[in-house]
Each structure stands twice: as C-alpha cells, then as structure tokens.
C-alpha cells in the first residue's frame, strides 16, 4: 500500500527535479522546484514525519521559493539568454558534475544495500508529530536551538547591510 503511493510520488518528484535542470526559462525551473518540494513533502508524510512534511511546505516551498521567485522577477532574465547558452558547453563543469552525481549514486546504492528492507522499522503512533519533535528540540537540543537564533540574527543583519548600502 505504501509503495503504491511512494512510487508515483517519487516519480513525480524526480520528473520535476529533471524539469528544474532541463527547463529553458528560469521561472519554469522555479515552478518545477516548488512542485518537487511538494512531492518531497508528500514522501516525508509517507515516512510518518508529519511535522517535517509541513515544514517542507512552509519553509522550502512557501518561503525560500518565494525568495527565488523574487530574484527571478527582479532580474527578469530572458528565456534564451546568450550567456545562458554559453554555459551549456562547459566541458569541465559537465565532467565534474557527472563525477559528483556518480559518487552520490554510488553512496546511495551502497547505503540501500546495508539496510534490511524486508522488515521495516516499527515506529510509535506519535512519531513525527509536532509535540514529540518539540520535546527533543527544547530539552536535548537547547544549545543548537539558541545558536540557530544567533544564525538568524546574523542573516538578518547581513541582508540589511547588503540591501541598504548606498552604492554612490
């Protein structure tokens, strides 16, 4: 039953991920990326990570992609830019990314074989709910939580410094 939902979702996500790379227009790529994020959220929900699934939608599909969208709309890149075309024939980049992709694929395959797929792990009913995640986050991981706030502060300062600097 779960596999029946998993494969269409995974296929959908993969197709959109390919769409991100293959798409000629930047805004089309961004839309594909949003769709892929939503597919990913579906997979998370399938793995019982309910809170993470919702965060995936809110933060990645809802917030960060809005930022991407803004950049695309602000710059208004044309669909077929000459510079954009020139990048297509960068042999060094192609070789490098191919090696990287093959490495990742190798790692993924070895990891899959390490696990015993026949007996999936049993998780409690409350697994992945907001309360359980909050419990660990606010007791065991207090320090990372507070450090995250400082990180956010740094990002905020950085954004304002970049955006509000007068060029002249």
């Amino acid at each position: 039953m779960e596999l029946l939902i998993f494969y269409p979702l995974a296929g959908f996500s993969l197709m959109l991920a390919l769409g991100v790379v293959m798409n000629k227009s930047p805004i089309g790529s961004a839309l594909c990326l949003i769709g892929m994020m939503l597919g990913l959220a579906g997979i998370f929900a399938l793995q019982q990570a309910h809170f993470i699934a919702i965060l995936q939608v809110i933060i990645y599909a809802g917030a960060i992609m809005v930022l991407f969208m803004f950049v695309i709309m602000l710059l208004n890149l044309k669909g077929t830019d000459t510079k954009w075309r020139a990048r297509e024939r960068n042999t060094l980049l192609t070789v490098l990314t191919t090696f990287l992709a093959l490495g990742v694929l190798y790692k993924v395959i070895t990891v899959i074989f390490e696990f015993n797929l026949d007996s999936p792990a049993k998780v409690p009913d409350t697994f992945g709910t907001a309360a359980v995640i909050g419990e660990t986050l606010f007791t065991d991981f207090v320090l990372p939580f507070e450090v995250a706030s400082i990180l956010l502060l740094a990002a905020m300062v950085g954004a304002v410094v970049l955006a509000k600097t007068k060029l002249d």
Partner: peptide, 24 residues
C-alpha cells in the same frame, strides 16, 4: 522588495520554531 522577501524567510523560520514550543 527583495529585502522584504529575505526578512520574510527569516521570520518564517522563527515562527516555525514557535509552533512546537507553544503546544508544549
């Protein structure tokens, strides 16, 4: 407009931390 978007992302992440905290 870009600055608004950046601030939105930052505050959205902040707001997300609030939710599990609030119910606990």
């Amino acid at each position: 407009f870009y600055l608004v978007a950046v601030l939105f992302v930052l505050f959205d992440i902040e707001a997300v931390f609030f939710f599990p905290w609030a119910i606990l």
